[in-house]
Computed example of a mutant assay.
Amino acid sequence: MAKDHYSVLGVQRTAKPDEIQRAYRKLARKYHPDVNREPDAADKFKEIGEAYNTLSDPETRARYDRFGSDFRHYAGSGAGPGGGRWSSAGPRPGPRPGARPGRGGYGNVEVDLGGDDDWEDLLGGWFRQQAGGQAQGADHEAELWLTLEEAVRGGRRTVRLAQPDGATSNYDVDVPAGVLDGQRIRLAGEGGAGREGGPQGDLLLTVRIQPDSRYRLKGRDIYFDLPVTPSEAALGAKIKTQAPAGTVTITVPGSSSSGRRLRLRGQGMPNPRGLPGNLYAEIKIMVPPSLSKEERKLYEKISSVSDFNPREER
């Protein structure tokens, strides 16, 4: 026996559209096969998607409320009591089994720099009504995880996503250099199938930048610790080190203490619409884990001739 769509989403039969949408979003995130590894997660995810696709459309919901699980066999001009004649018909087209793999590139990729969350979730979404009764397919949504280096440099990435039927599809995505966490990349025409011949929806990829043990991203500025020896900090040095965009040379001024921040202008996160961020190296003085006899003698010599006391107020 088919499960009641309202029970699947955990809402009352009198639930308003926004309540149905919120319930769907919560459950879709919980049971998405890329997140939930339970054996029945894919089946639950598909069940949730079917329930939402039925209840999110007013006409389809009205038929479901009247005819229950047999609602797909009826279509007509009316939905409620006395709403017109009903005729036998097959089910309306649903989401296709799998999106077209292998598409991508700047031809169908658009970066959305907006910050609102008014997007549709995977397998769901309100059908945007078109002329002649057609409806555009639902926008699908997923997350695209990147390392900081990948976000800085950009380039081609292959994304593998689960489909409603349990299969997977690959998408080639050109990631623009400088994309930030939370921004969205739109792949036009890679979402749900349209209804009544309507256009296909889009696939919206929300960028997520993985935490990095070395680098700290603040806006478009990148911070990292630069380990230096006591002699490099005291005398100054030119140090080559790895940064997210590649190797950089940093000039350490003499008499630098731990915590001193050195700026490399414009070498942080690129900005497709303006000035790039900066790269900041913070001095961190390191001493050897053990000293040789000669090193100890030299440190003792420095100690004997220096009157510097870092604990005195200056």
Rank of each mutant, 00 (worst) to 15 (best):
residue 135 A to E: 11
residue 97 P to Y: 02
residue 119 W to P: 02
residue 150 E to N: 05
residue 26 K to T: 13
residue 29 R to K: 11
residue 107 G to K: 03
residue 69 S to G: 05
residue 149 E to A: 15
residue 62 A to S: 14
residue 145 W to F: 12
residue 139 D to M: 01
residue 160 R to Y: 00
residue 47 E to G: 04
residue 114 G to Q: 07
residue 112 D to P: 01
residue 46 K to G: 07
residue 139 D to I: 02
residue 126 W to R: 15
residue 128 R to W: 05
residue 98 G to S: 15
residue 120 E to I: 00
residue 121 D to M: 13
residue 143 E to S: 12
residue 71 F to Q: 09
residue 110 E to H: 11
residue 112 D to L: 15
residue 124 G to A: 13
residue 76 G to N: 03
residue 125 G to E: 05
residue 122 L to I: 08
residue 130 Q to I: 04
residue 91 P to C: 05
residue 30 K to R: 11
residue 74 Y to F: 11
residue 65 D to F: 02
residue 77 S to W: 00
residue 150 E to W: 00
residue 83 G to K: 01
residue 48 I to D: 06
residue 77 S to Y: 01
residue 67 F to A: 07
residue 95 P to D: 13
residue 106 Y to F: 09
residue 129 Q to F: 00
residue 100 R to Y: 06
residue 28 A to K: 02
residue 117 D to N: 14
residue 151 A to I: 10
residue 142 A to G: 12
residue 115 G to H: 08
residue 108 N to A: 09
residue 110 E to N: 13
residue 46 K to V: 05
residue 134 Q to K: 11
residue 51 A to T: 06
residue 137 G to Q: 02
residue 122 L to W: 06
residue 139 D to W: 00
residue 106 Y to T: 11
residue 115 G to W: 00
residue 70 D to Y: 03
residue 136 Q to W: 00
residue 111 V to A: 14
residue 120 E to T: 15
residue 59 E to K: 13
residue 126 W to T: 14
residue 91 P to W: 02
residue 146 L to H: 10
residue 134 Q to I: 01
residue 63 R to C: 06
residue 112 D to A: 04
residue 62 A to W: 00
residue 47 E to C: 04
residue 124 G to I: 09
residue 41 A to H: 04
residue 34 D to F: 00
residue 125 G to Y: 00
residue 153 R to N: 13
residue 142 A to S: 14
residue 151 A to H: 05
residue 29 R to Q: 12
residue 146 L to K: 12
residue 138 A to T: 10
residue 70 D to W: 00
residue 153 R to G: 08
residue 100 R to V: 14
residue 104 G to N: 03
residue 80 G to Y: 04
residue 130 Q to E: 15
residue 127 F to R: 09
residue 98 G to E: 15
residue 133 G to E: 04
residue 153 R to E: 09
residue 25 R to I: 09
residue 107 G to E: 12
residue 70 D to T: 08
residue 144 L to H: 13
residue 23 A to G: 07
residue 151 A to E: 07
residue 150 E to K: 05
residue 62 A to E: 12
residue 62 A to R: 10
residue 75 A to R: 12
residue 55 L to S: 12
residue 73 H to A: 05
residue 57 D to C: 04
residue 69 S to Q: 10
residue 88 S to D: 05
residue 151 A to Q: 10
residue 147 T to A: 11
residue 134 Q to A: 07
residue 106 Y to W: 06
residue 40 D to W: 01
residue 75 A to W: 07
residue 143 E to F: 14
residue 80 G to M: 05
residue 99 A to N: 12
residue 43 D to P: 00
residue 79 A to K: 04
residue 82 G to R: 02
residue 148 L to R: 05
residue 139 D to A: 05
residue 140 H to K: 08
residue 40 D to Y: 01
residue 81 P to W: 02
residue 31 Y to V: 08
residue 58 P to Y: 04
residue 105 G to K: 01
residue 41 A to G: 10
residue 100 R to T: 14
residue 126 W to S: 13
residue 49 G to C: 11
residue 138 A to G: 15
residue 124 G to N: 09
residue 154 G to T: 04
residue 129 Q to S: 12
residue 93 P to D: 08
residue 150 E to T: 08
residue 123 L to G: 04
residue 135 A to I: 01
residue 127 F to D: 15
residue 149 E to K: 15
residue 50 E to G: 11
residue 135 A to S: 09
residue 83 G to T: 07
residue 133 G to Q: 02
residue 28 A to G: 04
residue 76 G to Q: 02
residue 67 F to P: 03
residue 53 N to Q: 10
residue 91 P to A: 08
